[in-house]
Computed example of a mutant assay.
Amino acid sequence: MKRDYKKKLIMGGNGGFSLIELMVAIAIVGIVLVSLSAVFERSGRLYTTQNVSAALQEEVRAAVEIIAREARMAGFDPLKTGDFELKTATSTHLRFTTDLNEDGAVATTGFPNCERLSFRYSAAQQALQIVCNEGGAGQDIQVLIGNSDTLVTAVDFAYRDNDGNPTTFVNQMRSMVITLTAEAPAGRTGMIERSYTTWVDFRNMASNAAYN
């Protein structure tokens, strides 16, 4: 007996999908693709945020450490001339002289051997500046941190006396707490913000003739 394959195919057999089954399959595939796309998007956003966050934290920390390193030498006056001391000490502006070459004269020839140094916050530029010979001839201003991507949102220099108490009197200052806050764009996450704080001693103040 011959099997009528042609008749079976016309009448619809077991080998194929109906239109409804095909539509359901397409819908399921679409849902899976949308879910995968969302997962990849979240992963990419997290990766970008983590990278920007790490880079920003390092940039802020490096800027604070530069301030701390220079501030430790503030008022260094080995020849006891009385010309090397803290000149300005506010919450956003630190200016001092230091006798780096130990010759008793203030060198203002520029970086990197400048002996009249300032750190100041520019709110207009949202940047922290380092300045050699501020207000004098040959004044040299450089941006320590702050550009088109990284914006400095806050700077705080808080000063302490010999007992660690807050003070606003320059002749009593023996240390300072430096806090710097900045933000940077992290793609679709938007702006992220990071801060760094450190404590630095003014090593030379206790023995400086200008403070005794």
Rank of each mutant, 00 (worst) to 15 (best):
D103L: 04
D103E: 15
D103C: 05
D103S: 05
G104A: 01
G104L: 03
G104M: 05
G104D: 01
V106E: 01
V106T: 02
A107V: 14
A107H: 14
A107E: 15
A107P: 01
A107F: 13
T108D: 14
T108Y: 11
T108V: 15
T108M: 13
T109M: 06
T109F: 03
T109N: 15
T109Q: 13
T109A: 11
T109E: 13
G110S: 09
G110I: 13
G110D: 07
F111T: 01
P112Y: 04
P112A: 14
P112N: 07
N113D: 11
N113H: 03
N113W: 03
C114Q: 13
C114S: 10
C114L: 06
E115W: 01
E115P: 02
E115R: 00
E115V: 01
R116M: 11
L117V: 08
S118D: 11
S118P: 11
S118Y: 12
F119L: 10
Y121C: 14
Y121R: 13
S122L: 13
S122D: 08
A123M: 05
A123S: 08
A123H: 00
A124F: 00
A124W: 00
Q125C: 02
Q125A: 15
Q125Y: 02
Q126K: 11
A127D: 02
A127Y: 00
A127V: 07
L128Y: 02
L128G: 05
L128S: 08
Q129S: 02
Q129A: 06
I130P: 00
I130S: 05
I130Y: 01
I130M: 15
V131T: 12
V131H: 07
C132Y: 04
C132L: 02
N133A: 10
N133P: 14
E134Q: 10
E134Y: 01
E134A: 11
G135K: 13
G135Q: 13
G135T: 09
G136L: 14
G136Y: 09
G136V: 09
G136H: 07
A137Q: 11
A137E: 12
G138A: 12
G138I: 12
Q139G: 04
Q139T: 09
D140T: 09
Q142E: 13
Q142R: 15
Q142K: 08
V143S: 02
L144Q: 09
L144G: 04
I145Y: 08
N147M: 09
N147Y: 10
N147S: 08
D149G: 01
T150S: 03
T150P: 00
L151W: 11
L151P: 00
V152N: 07
V152F: 12
V152K: 11
V152W: 07
T153H: 04
T153A: 05
T153P: 02
A154G: 08
A154C: 06
A154Y: 06
A154D: 09
A154S: 14
V155C: 02
D156L: 13
D156F: 05
F157P: 03
F157W: 06
F157M: 14
F157D: 07
F157V: 11
A158W: 00
A158V: 05
A158M: 04
A158R: 08
A158D: 01
Y159F: 12
R160S: 03
R160Y: 15
N162Y: 04
N162L: 11
N162C: 00
D163Q: 13
N165R: 14
N165K: 15
P166T: 10
P166R: 05
T167D: 01
T167A: 07
